[in-house]
């Protein structure tokens, strides 16, 4: 249903229909921005990636061929842009992990919510990029297993493996901090 509705809106958006453009922006920009924010741990950079992904989408609209869902394609573009930026970061400076917040992180602890969020965001951003992507797409967003795998261009089995490692690493990191 969403697929055919996308096609209709893509066709109309390509001809400059503002309502269709607005619908696509409202439907997909939160997910793309969230993915980029979790991956990059930098809101300004995440907004740049979101803009770049949409600019590429707008350019692709007139010749759009529905071989993949628009949502999958758009998130894949955004994810690849994130990978590029992370690689450039690593190349230009020795990657400094996002500032860590040392505190207990178990959910039953009386922690300030914003500090906990900051700590988890930092820990996700510090994960290997594919693990961070898998965790963000599956655990923080509502993508199906098949769609998350399609966005990452891997099998569901490979996605499962990345997810398991991501959750294990995240748990270890957060537990270490809580014990520190």
């Amino acid at each position: 249903m969403a697929f055919s509705s996308d096609l209709d809106q893509i066709t109309r958006a390509a001809s400059g229909d503002r309502q269709a453009v607005s619908a696509l922006v409202n439907r997909y920009s939160p997910g793309v921005l969230a993915l980029a924010t979790r991956m990059l741990a930098d809101r300004a950079e995440a907004e740049d990636v979101t803009q770049e992904a949409f600019i590429r989408a707008w350019k692709a609209l007139p010749t759009w061929e529905p071989r993949a869902k628009f949502s999958t394609w758009l998130h894949r573009v955004a994810l690849n842009l994130c990978y590029d930026r992370l690689r450039k970061r690593r190349d230009s400076t020795m990657a400094e992990l996002p500032e860590r917040v040392d505190m207990a992180l178990r959910p039953d602890d009386a922690l300030d919510q914003s500090e906990r969020v900051q700590a988890v965001e930092g820990a996700i951003a510090a994960l290997p990029e594919r693990q961070a992507a898998a965790l963000t797409l599956c655990a923080l967003q509502d993508h199906s297993q098949a769609e998350a795998a399609a966005i990452m261009e891997i099998s569901v089995e490979a996605l499962e493996s990345l997810l398991a490692r991501a959750r294990r690493t995240l748990r270890t990191v957060l537990m270490e901090r809580s014990e520190a």
Partner: peptide, 19 residues
């Protein structure tokens, strides 16, 4: 984890860049 919401400025920029 809180939802990430695009700012009005970002939404406007995305709309402006559209065909």
């Amino acid at each position: 984890m809180p939802a990430v919401t695009p700012s009005p400025a970002l939404t406007a920029a995305l709309m402006d860049a559209a065909p």
